[in-house]
Write a protein that binds this DNA or RNA. Structure first.
Lengths: 344, 344
DNA sequence: CTGAAAGCGCTTACAG
DNA sequence: CTGAAAGCGCTTACAG
C-alpha cells in the first residue's frame, strides 16, 4: 500500500498538502492538486482507514446490531435479507460500510471482559471502533442494551422497536394504518364478526396493529368481544392454536386478521384441519407479505411491508445524524394491501 | 474513553507496561499486572481499535462480500440468514466482527474512485481496513473480483463457489453426494425414468448436483436421455417451465430431481396445472430445504443443507488462515435427505 | 521485568 | 496557498 508520504516525496510537496488534496481540495492550488491526484491515481493510492479513524475519530462505518434471540434459537427475522439490501445500498451510496457487531449473547464479548448482560456493550463497541452510529434490529432479547445505547447520545436508529434518546429514532411500517386497511377490506367484503390474532404484547408492530384493528372496528361500528382478540407470538404454531380457539367459540368469527403471515399460515392450517373452507367459511388476512404468503393454499391476502424501504429509511436516518443533522422523527412507512384468495 | 496513558499515570507505570498487560501479560510482574488490571476495570477501559489496527496492521475484522446481483434484482440467497448466524457466531467466539463491504455494484465505490468493475476493489478494501480476510458469498455477478481477490494471497473463503489461490479455499455442501441420495431414494421407490432440472451451468452447486445425479443413475444402470436434463436458473419460473417441457415429452419421467427447492416448487405448480398428481403420477425432489419446502402442497422431499454449518465452516477457515495456519482444503458439508410427501 | 523512544499513516490547527 | 509540527492511541523492538 502506498502512503501519503511516498506521494508527497514524488510530488515534492508536504504530506499536509497531499492530505488536503483528498480532504479539502479547494484549499490547494490547482497545479499541485492535479499533480498529486495524478500520482495518487498512478500508484492506486488508498488512504489507510485505521490511521484516518485514529486522527479524525470517525471510521466510515455504521454498526449493525442483530442479535439472535438466545431464548428462541429458531427465531428468524421475517425480512432480514431485504432489510440488509436496503440498508447496505443506502449506506454504500454514501461510502459507508456496515459492521455487524458480535452481539451480547456471544462468547466473544465475555472473552473481552464484557459480561453477557453488559448494557453498555454497544456503547463501548461504538466508541472503540469510532462507529458513526448504530442500527438496531429488534430481536426481543436486548431491551436493556437497546435502551442504554439510545440514551448514550450516539446516533441510534432502531427497526421495529421504539427507542428514546437525544439522538435516537426508529423506523417501522405504518402498522396501525395497515391493520386498518385489512379491517376495511374485510368489512367491505361484508364481514361483521372479525377477530384478530395479535403479536406479543410488548412488541411495537404488534401493539400498533392491534390499535389499528380496534380503530377500524370502531369506525365500522363493530364490536370486538374479548374472545376475538387472541395473543400469539408471531410464530406459526401460535397462529394455529389461536385459530383453533377462535373456531371453537360459540359464535366464531367469519374473518380473522393475523398480525403476521407466519401466524396466518398457521391459521390457514387450523381452518383446514377443522374442515373450514377459506375464504368461504372463514377469511384470513396476514401481515408482512413474506414469500410464503403467495404460495400457500389458498394464497394469503396480506399487508406488504416496504422491506427494503425500511432499510433505506434506517440508513438515511443514521446518516443524517452522523452528518450533524437533527434527530429525525420516527418514520412509519406505508404498507400495501395485497388481496389474494384467502379473503374476499 | 479512557486511554492507556491515563491508566499508566494512575498506576505509576509506563504506557508500555500497560500495553503489555493486555497483550503479553506474562512478561509483566504480577503486582504491576494486578494493579493495572484493577484500574483498567474500574475505569472500564477499552482499547481504541483504530489505534491498535494502525500499530499492528490487524483490525479484528473479517470482511463479508455479499453483492446482490444487479442483473437480477429479485435474486435472493436461499439461506442467507442461517449462513450469517453461523458466520457471526463462530467469528464472535474468537472476538471478530464481520464487516459487510459496500460492494462493487454500488455508487459508493465509484465515488471513492473504484470503477464499477474494478477487480481489485476487494483487495484494496481489505488492505485499507486491515481486514483479516474475506468471506465471499456467491451472487453470480462478481467473478472477476472474486478471482482477483483469491489470487491476492489474502485469506479468502468463498461460499458455494470454487476459488483458487495461495490462501483461498471454499465451503459448500456435498452437492454430488446429496444428488446421489436423491436418486437412490427415487430408485428405491421404484422409479426408472428420472429426469433432472439443473441450475446454471457455471454454478458450482449446480454442476456438482448434476454430476451426482449422473453418477447415481449410472450406478443404478439407468439411462439419462438428453431430454431428461433441463437447465433452469434456480428461480421458480424456470422450474415451472422445465417441468412443463418434461411433461410434454413422448415418454415423460415419473420422477424429477430439481437442483433447488424454488425450482421444485415451480415443478409442483406445473404438475398441478397439468393435472398430474404428485407423487402418484410424478414424484418431485428438491434441494436446500428452504422454509417453503415443508409448506407447499404436497410438502416437498428435499436435501437439507447444513446452512448455519456452512457459515461456521467458512468462519473457521478464515480464522485458521488469519492465525497463520495452512490454507484449509475445500469443505463439503454433508446434506440430509428429508422425505416428505412429494416423493415415494 | 521495565521504560524511553520510535513508529503505524493520517489530519489539522498554527505560522508564515 | 504551503509546510513543520503536534497529535490521534497503541505496540514493540531496543536498552538496561
Amino acid at each position: 500500500m502506498t502512503t501519503i508520504r511516498e506521494i508527497a516525496q514524488l510530488c515534492g510537496v508536504s504530506v499536509a498538502t497531499v492530505s488536503r488534496v483528498f480532504n479539502q481540495p479547494l484549499t490547494v492550488s490547482r497545479e499541485k492538486r492535479e499533480v498529486v491526484e495524478r500520482v495518487a491515481r498512478e500508484l492506486d493510492y488508498r488512504p489507510n482507514e485505521s490511521a484516518r479513524a485514529l486522527a479524525t475519530k470517525r471510521s466510515g462505518l455504521i454498526g449493525l446490531v442483530w442479535d439472535t434471540d438466545h431464548r428462541r434459537p429458531g427465531w428468524r427475522h421475517p425480512y432480514l435479507q431485504e432489510l440488509l439490501i436496503g440498508l447496505k445500498s443506502a449506506l454504500s451510496a454514501h461510502g459507508y460500510h456496515l459492521l455487524m457487531l458480535a452481539t451480547s449473547g456471544s462468547a466473544a464479548l465475555r472473552a473481552v471482559g464484557a459480561s453477557l448482560a453488559d448494557p453498555v456493550a454497544y456503547v463501548n463497541m461504538t466508541r472503540r471502533h469510532h462507529l458513526g452510529g448504530l442500527v438496531l434490529i429488534d430481536s426481543g432479547s436486548d431491551a436493556p442494551a437497546f435502551t442504554a445505547f439510545a440514551q448514550s447520545g450516539l446516533p441510534c436508529v432502531a427497526v421495529d422497536v421504539a427507542v428514546d434518546g437525544p439522538r435516537a429514532t426508529y423506523v417501522t411500517s405504518d402498522n396501525a394504518q395497515g391493520a386498518q386497511q385489512a379491517v376495511r377490506h374485510l368489512v367491505a367484503a361484508g364481514h361483521r364478526r372479525i377477530a384478530t390474532i395479535t403479536g406479543p404484547r410488548q412488541n411495537l408492530p404488534a401493539v400498533d396493529r392491534l390499535t389499528g384493528f380496534r380503530a377500524a372496528m370502531a369506525e365500522a361500528g363493530l364490536p370486538v368481544p374479548d374472545e376475538y382478540v387472541v395473543e400469539g407470538d408471531f410464530y406459526r404454531p401460535s397462529g394455529q392454536a389461536a385459530m383453533r380457539s377462535l373456531i371453537a367459540l360459540p359464535e366464531p368469527p367469519t374473518a380473522v386478521f393475523c398480525a403476521g403471515d407466519e401466524m396466518a399460515v398457521g391459521a390457514l392450517l387450523a381452518a383446514r384441519h377443522a374442515g373450514l373452507r377459506v375464504p368461504e367459511e372463514v377469511a384470513v388476512v396476514g401481515f408482512d407479505d413474506i414469500e410464503l404468503a403467495a404460495l400457500v393454499d389458498p394464497p394469503l391476502t396480506t399487508l406488504a411491508q416496504d422491506k427494503a424501504g425500511i432499510g433505506v429509511a434506517a440508513a438515511r436516518a443514521v446518516l443524517t445524524m452522523v452528518h450533524g443533522g437533527a434527530t429525525p422523527a420516527p418514520a412509519f412507512l406505508p404498507t400495501r394491501l395485497v388481496v389474494r384468495s384467502s379473503s374476499r
